[in-house]
């Protein structure tokens, strides 16, 4: 089961290393991790997608890091999730037309066209991206890069109870 956690941290050097080191040390699996600035320059927000059942420990151990300000476990259905990917697929000239039609359905943008390949940019819900990828497999995916998920709770009510625990 994948869980999405939004972690607000102080924007300090090395804070990403502290978080990833903690995950490694405690044996927690990171599926994806994104980090970037927030509306407040003193803070960064990380979106971490984790695998596994130890959610309570993960949240508590995150809080234990001195630079962690807030940890929110985002509830599926109460969360806006987005991801962007660049995907290069084989595009035989004979099948290019149908490929572009399919891409259109997913609002995928053509960002590069080569002799035998086409590269798409797709942004959206992770499940949409996965659906598009499934479709592209029949053409042959040459290269794939994903940004990792960013997510935001739809409103403050979706903050879970354990997301508010403080730490020593």
């Amino acid at each position: 089961m994948k869980h999405v956690i939004s972690v607000t941290v102080e924007n300090k050097p090395g804070v990403l290393a502290r978080i990833s080191s903690m995950f490694a040390r405690r044996g927690f699996n990171i599926h994806s991790l994104t980090v970037g600035p927030t509306e407040d320059p003193r803070l960064s927000r990380m979106t971490v997608v984790v695998d596994g059942p130890e959610m309570e420990q993960i949240v508590k151990q995150l809080y234990k890091l001195v630079h962690t300000v807030k940890v929110t476990e985002l509830e599926p259905g109460e969360t806006i999730e987005r991801e962007i990917m660049l995907v290069r697929v084989n595009a035989d000239p004979t099948r290019r037309g149908e490929l572009l039609d399919a891409a259109n359905l997913f609002s995928a943008k053509v960002v590069d066209v080569g002799a035998t390949t086409v590269t798409f940019e797709v942004a959206g819900e992770p499940s949409t991206l996965n659906d598009f990828l499934e479709l592209l497999r029949t053409y042959g995916i040459v290269t794939l890069v994903k940004s990792g998920r960013i997510a935001l709770a739809k409103d403050q009510k979706s903050t879970t109870r354990r997301g508010r625990l403080r730490t020593a």
């Binding site: 420990q57 809080y63 625990l165 730490t167 020593a168």
Partner: peptide, 18 residues
């Protein structure tokens, strides 16, 4: 325990007190 991460780490607590 003063450290919430210790509570429930090994054994579930019926009454946790941080």
């Amino acid at each position: 325990d003063v450290d919430p991460a210790e509570i429930g780490k090994v054994r579930t607590a019926d009454v946790p007190i941080v």
